[in-house]
């Protein structure tokens, strides 16, 4: 079975359903946590810092940061639950252990987790989009494409996070991933400031991070400034999902497979 074929297996959707069922027991707190953080950045930076600066080509900092934080939210929700949450499900709660005594293939578990992270990114992303709408952002039909990009982003960020959860020995080691990968990616991904004044090498690095492309698309959709270059960003994301999906297969089989 290839990691992509696993998305189409019924068991992947049953794993998804299990996470949805469990989520319903802590939905409110989860929603609150995942919306407060981007909202705090949005208010503090957009309005606080934004009182002193404008961004060339965007007017206010609010206009610039608001849509960027949509990509940030997708990355955070998927990264956190696919690493911290999956570690818990695998090691502490025996969730995967019982799945593999039933005829669930380890790659179906992974696919179910990716689908679930896509769902989370869509739920929390749309909620934040609602917040943006209250502040006058995203009043365009292009935002209707946001759920699709949120879903793809959720999958893309979930894959490396799940991989890390499969190889670390203790849950605390996940902080290495958060501190050394996720946080720098947020800094250089074009969420908080435009990258055009950065040296060329920094821009090149940014181009190779997934967040950069997600943020490009969200900003264009929310501000209604859509151009053909977005197709390259979208293709980048799809290609990343396809290529990345092979990264954790060995680790997943080592942990859960026969």
């Amino acid at each position: 079975m290839s990691p992509l074929a696993a998305f189409f297996r019924p068991n992947a959707w049953r794993v998804f359903r299990r996470n949805m069922l469990a989520w319903q027991t802590y939905a409110w707190s989860s929603l609150a946590i995942n919306i407060v953080e981007p909202f705090a950045y949005f208010v503090a930076l957009g309005f606080g810092l934004g009182a002193y600066f404008t961004v060339t080509g965007y007017g206010s900092l609010v206009q610039f940061i608001g849509p960027g934080l949509l990509g940030f939210t997708a990355m955070n929700t998927a990264t956190f639950d696919a690493s911290w949450g999956c570690f818990e499900r695998r090691v502490f709660n025996g969730v995967y252990e019982s799945m593999v005594t039933a005829p669930v293939h380890p790659l179906e578990i992974a696919a179910g987790e990716y689908l679930w992270q896509a769902c989370r990114a869509v739920m929390y992303g749309l909620l934040f989009l609602g917040v943006l709408a209250v502040f006058g952002l995203g009043h365009t039909f292009w935002v209707l494409l946001c759920p699709m990009i949120l879903a793809l982003s959720g999958i893309m960020f979930a894959i490396p996070a799940l991989f890390v959860s499969m190889i670390v020995k203790t849950q605390e080691h996940l902080f290495y991933y958060f501190s050394f990968v996720a946080t720098p990616m947020a800094m250089i991904g074009g969420v908080f400031f435009p990258l055009d004044k950065l040296p060329h090498w920094a821009l090149t690095i940014a181009w190779f991070t997934p967040l950069y492309h997600a943020v490009n698309i969200f900003r264009a959709l929310v501000l209604g400034r859509v151009g053909p270059s977005l197709l390259i960003d979208a293709a980048w994301i799809v290609a990343a999902i396809i290529l990345l999906s092979y990264l954790p297969t060995r680790a997943i089989r080592n942990r859960l497979g026969n």
Binding site: P10, N11, R14, R17, R18, L21, A22, T25, N93, G94, V95, E97, S98, M99, T101, A102, P103, V104
Partner: peptide, 27 residues
């Protein structure tokens, strides 16, 4: 049917949900 040494019941689901989810894996 397998009863492993460790229980591996899902603490986030009810007893019934545990059974129904597991049954779904068998179709």
């Amino acid at each position: 049917g397998v009863v492993a040494q460790e229980n591996a019941l899902d603490p986030e689901l009810t007893a019934l949900e545990n059974l129904l989810l597991y049954a779904s894996f068998f179709g």
